[in-house]
Design a binder for these strands. Structure first.
Lengths: 212, 212
DNA sequence: GCCGGACCTCAACCGCCGGTCGAGGGTTGA
DNA sequence: TCAACCCTCGACCGGCGGTTGAGGTCCGGC
């Protein structure tokens, strides 16, 4: 299992992993005799830590915070109040396609939680929904809805209203269509990669055309 | 002038600035008697350094590389070869709207330089140009063209060809139109902000819709 | 012309972060 | 039974990002 990670991250060692455990970044299960037993999820977590450290130069303290945020997004704080989204940290950086942070789609928010988390008025939320920029699934909204809503609110400060943003929705739908055509079998990793490419292309085009 | 920066970055001190100079991150001019003289550009540079350190947790070594890359983009290496774009560093992170890095639009590349930097075939570049995804201004291409071309190349590995990417161009054009409507007087900071918002909205929409 | 305060250099020092090392000891499987 | 792993725990370490202080220079005001 060490070998597994070493293929991807050259400088990982046993002692490093032990250190990361001591710092509370992973907590592998133990066998009766005290040996560490790494589940797939633990390895995933380690992969995230090592990647963040290598590619984003994040200090362990910050990586730990991110992991904490992700966890709270996934499990609504066992036995507590449903993890008031009021206290959502500011988007770590500004999330691009790679950075899932608290905006994973596994987050489930009520309408009111969404409204509060995004800091918008009910009216604005109505408008966003009527233009399909924010859509409920069943009874709740996902984490990306916060991001959409928050961004729309900032647009609003420039006098750009939800109805002006419809083309974004259309464009996004078309891109998703394109991606889905390509991915026949649901291999999530490829999907993510394509989505990241789409967002990157889009960003570069906007910036390039804006400069002209 | 120290006070100026301290307003924005609480923990900056004289000794810290001296240290940054020793590390080669700024090189203020000197008066005859040896006192440091900070030009506006120096302060801008310091601002960049401090922001990168505080907000992105980047180590000084990396910040220095970024600054170096930016410089080489702006001035084609006085008296040397035109700063072979072959050696362009991998995109620091993956550039979102905020991260200009080496992809500033001030970079000027010949067609061949662009091709090499993006690692694509001349044929692909032809296709990109015929669909207006990459456009020359005068005789050269800007830094974003690299990013567009590189991303298109990755799409190509999935069987998505330039002609499938036209909708991206259209969408980007529409967004730019929207932004330009709002910005009557060319205040660049606002323009950037709106562009960042556009890209963010777009990314969130794609991700959200993909998850359904 | 001289005093106080701000600036300079340079070397020494510092605290924290991210680990590594090794001693001493248990576990496992051939 | 023995080699090869695994464990813990404390000591140690190198580098990064500065800070401190001694010793000296520069400038404005009186």
């Amino acid at each position: 299992m060490l070998q597994l990670l070493q293929a991807e991250f050259a400088d990982v060692t046993i002692s490093k992993i032990r250190f990361l455990e001591a710092e509370g970044l992973v907590t592998p299960a133990r066998t009766v005799s005290g040996y560490r037993k790494f589940a797939a999820a633990d390895i995933e977590r380690l992969r995230y830590v090592l990647a963040a450290q290598r590619d984003q130069y994040l200090p362990l303290r910050v990586i730990k915070e991110h992991l904490g945020a992700m966890e709270r997004g996934l499990r609504p704080t066992p036995g507590g109040r449903p993890a008031a989204p009021e206290n959502l940290p500011e988007p770590p950086g500004l999330p691009g396609a790679e950075d899932f942070g608290v905006y994973g789609t596994e987050l489930k928010l009520t309408r009111e939680e969404l409204r509060a988390a995004a800091g918008i008025t009910p009216e604005l939320l109505d408008q966003l929904e009527s233009h399909n920029l924010v859509v409920a699934r069943g009874n709740h909204y996902d984490g990306d809805a916060i991001l959409v809503a928050r961004t729309a609110a900032e647009f609003a400060e420039y006098g750009i209203e939800p109805r002006h943003l419809r083309p974004f929705r259309t464009a996004a739908d078309r891109e998703v269509g394109l991606i889905e055509q390509v991915i026949s079998q649901r291999r999530d990793d490829k999907t993510q990669e394509l989505a990241a490419l789409a967002v990157r292309l889009h960003a570069a085009l906007v910036r390039s055309r804006l400069a002209r």
